[in-house]
């Protein structure tokens, strides 16, 4: 006997999908509309607004800045996060429980508070330049994700394997790179992607840390919307979405999305 699905459940599912996907369809439609304002359904078809992104220098600059900050920030977060996650898992029984909680604290603190306090401390008090403060802010923002995801990968790693390698004459540092790291590779890749996407899409932290001449793409989108109402914003949004979707497809194809989900 096949189980019948209640019509209300189908209706609910369809509604959820419309709610989730609807705005994306509208933005996509608006981005190709041949009008000087956001219009849906699109009137006429043009790729003019995508070209326009490259013509507005502020978009060009901020796309580069966003990519730089996301790549370097994520890289620094991995440099800090991998050893931290390793130490937290390797010596779990000897460490107090609150220590690992400490490392995920930035997730619990509202991002806007992190942004504000970083502005006060790093930028104003210490006088760190804008780009460097942005990097620090984004590193801090993505570090909890890096530690969480790599910890999850390490939690299922049997540290006897590491001890076996050491007992066979492999130096502990070398063992970390030849034995431990290859076995949590998928965790590292997942952490990288999650951190990268979080950084690229961040508004709250960047809002406080961007300064004269240096801004990130989402902040530039905000600034643009305040002055103009043309569909360029829609086409930038589509670009951001495409980037996220492409990254997700790569993850799905190579590792499976469950790596990010857990």
């Amino acid at each position: 006997m096949s189980r019948s699905i209640h019509p209300a459940l189908i209706a609910m599912t369809v509604l959820v999908y419309i709610f989730l996907i609807g705005p994306l369809v509208i933005i996509f439609g608006a981005s190709v509309s041949d009008t000087t304002f956001l219009a849906f359904p699109p009137q006429g078809l043009t790729l003019h607004w995508f070209e326009n992104i490259w013509e507005i220098s502020a978009f060009r600059r901020t796309i580069v800045t966003s990519l730089q900050v996301a790549l370097v920030g994520t890289f620094i977060a991995l440099l800090i996060g991998i050893p931290a996650a390793y130490a937290l898992n390797r010596h779990r029984i000897h460490l107090p429980g609150w220590l690992s909680t400490l490392f995920v604290l930035p997730i619990l603190v509202p991002e806007i508070v992190i942004g504000f306090s970083l502005l006060r401390s790093v930028n104003v008090e210490l006088g760190v330049p804008v780009f460097a403060s942005l990097l620090i802010g984004h590193t801090l923002l993505v570090l909890p994700y890096v530690i969480r995801v790599i910890s999850a990968a390490l939690a299922s790693f049997d540290f006897s394997i590491e001890e076996a390698a050491v007992s066979l004459g492999s130096h502990p540092v070398k063992t970390f790179f030849t034995i431990v790291l290859p076995n949590v590779r998928s965790g590292v890749i997942a952490a990288f992607i999650l951190a990268f996407i979080t950084s690229i899409n961040d508004v709250s932290v960047s809002l406080f840390l961007t300064g004269p001449g240096i801004s990130t793409l989402p902040i530039q989108i905000l600034a643009h919307v305040e002055q103009f109402f043309d569909p360029t914003v829609a086409s930038v949004s589509v670009l951001l979405m495409m980037l996220t979707i492409i990254v997700m497809i790569i993850v799905e194809r190579t590792l499976g999305l469950t790596v990010v989900a857990k």
């Binding site: 006897s160 001890e163 050491v166 004459g169 063992t175």
Partner: peptide, 14 residues
């Protein structure tokens, strides 16, 4: 440990 030259067999095979 890596200089001790001892053969080890673990419960989890490792």
């Amino acid at each position: 440990a890596h200089g001790r030259d001892i053969g080890l067999v673990f419960q989890s095979y490792a």
